[in-house]
Design a protein around this nucleic acid. Structure first.
Length: 171
DNA sequence: AGCAAGATCGGT
DNA sequence: CCGATCTTGCTG
């Protein structure tokens, strides 16, 4: 398996988010080295996207999304769940792919509990970190797209973008 | 300083 | 359907 480098992540999130399907998140921590297959992602794209946190402007919380692709953007939601995002695109073009599911763990809050992801991963570089990275096996995947989950507040236009990507099968 | 909201989840 | 639980960002 080969670790994905920054040239994978610095492309547009609408390219990167679906391409993350079938890739492997590798975690190296006190429980050893573990591998998890990515099965579901969502794209959050720029200040125009009213579902993207960056639409509210640049704040300390969203700062990581303004970095160049390949960093980690994590935040706590509902006081309980860490959301794991991979920053994509060029510097100062805030975008991120939310990792919604990994094989065996459906749901963005459940997978971070399994991976032991928390605030300490904020800004971490997936291309150089020794505790988390993304690898590929070189297989092709089949997937479907749907609208994104849990963003009704963003209004009809953004709620209806087909920016959720779900792995159907590995070819 | 106070407050409202939230890219969720599990139990009624 | 509803509550848990707490950080963030906005208002005053």
């Amino acid at each position: 398996m080969i670790r994905l480098s920054s040239n994978f992540f610095t492309r547009d999130v609408l390219i990167v988010a679906p391409e993350l399907l079938g890739k492997i998140i590798v975690i190296n921590d006190n429980r050893g080295i573990r591998e998890y297959l990515i099965t579901e992602t969502e794209a959050y794209r720029g200040t125009e996207d009213l579902a993207c946190h960056a639409c509210k402007g640049r704040t300390p919380r969203t700062e990581a999304m303004y970095d160049s692709g390949g960093k980690i953007y994590v935040y706590l939601i509902y006081g309980m769940y860490w959301m794991l995002n991979f920053v994509t695109g060029e510097k100062d073009h805030p975008q991120a792919a939310l990792i919604r599911s990994i094989e065996g763990f459906n749901g963005p809050g459940k997978l971070t509990r399994q991976l032991q992801i928390d605030k300490s991963f904020y800004g971490e570089n997936l291309c150089t970190s020794d505790r988390i990275w993304v690898a590929e096996k070189g297989n092709h995947v089949d997937y479907i797209t749907t609208k994104r989950i849990g963003i009704d507040y963003a209004g009809e236009k953004w709620n209806n973008q087909p920016w959720r990507f779900v792995l159907k099968s590995i070819l």
